[in-house]
Design a protein around this nucleic acid. Structure first.
Lengths: 96, 96
DNA sequence: CCTATATTTCTAGATTAGTCGAAATAATGA
DNA sequence: TCATTATTTCGACTAATCTAGAAATATAGG
């Protein structure tokens, strides 16, 4: 994971709506949740949510699988792990 | 650390310049580095750097100590640790 | 007091992000 | 085929961010 990729992911998680979406998806587990369910749970207008989901998918924080009419969003755990391990390695060196 | 505080910190680290500054300060260690040194090392114009440093200080990622004419920037390790622990607790639950 | 140094504040332009209604697309089932 | 449901794309607007030169501030040393 490069410096730029890490910054891009952090920037996406650095928005309260998107962070809330990610937390919701993690609670939903490996099977994720459809867009409509996220929308109902968090009360975000469809077009706004769609925009945020697209951004998160673009940097690999989630993936979207189409099942007939619904699109299921699944958190990409290993991407978050990459992020955490980067922060641990590159940003905690020298810590007490 | 609240949802909003976490998002704010992640947003600040989600900029390549600021992430580079933070990484540089962590390498510098607990004694930190003066603004001028960061500027020389990373090649960022003074006014731009000052802006980014102020933002990072605002969310508690660094602190700034004035020693005569120079201002020393010090990374706030416990803030980053708070961030990492939040991501681990709230965003990794259910992971394989 | 004056000059040099370190850093910030001011200002302004350019770019990007966030928001959301309305229209468009896609798939299902009657 | 038609209506319904799920979601996206479009379009438009506002707000925030990024950038950096120029001027201001603060401090040290001569």
């Amino acid at each position: 994971m490069t410096h730029e990729e890490v910054a891009a992911c952090l920037a996406e998680l650095g928005n309260t709506h998107r962070l809330a979406v990610f937390r919701f998806l993690v609670k939903a587990g490996h099977s994720g949740a459809p867009v409509g369910e996220i929308q109902k749970a968090l009360g975000i207008p469809g077009s706004t949510l769609s925009h945020h989901l697209a951004r998160m998918a673009r940097v690999g924080l989630i993936r979207q699988e189409k099942h007939s009419r619904t699109i299921v969003c699944i958190p990409e755990y290993q991407q978050l792990e990459g992020l955490i391990s980067f922060l641990n390695k590159e940003c905690c060196a020298g810590n007490s």
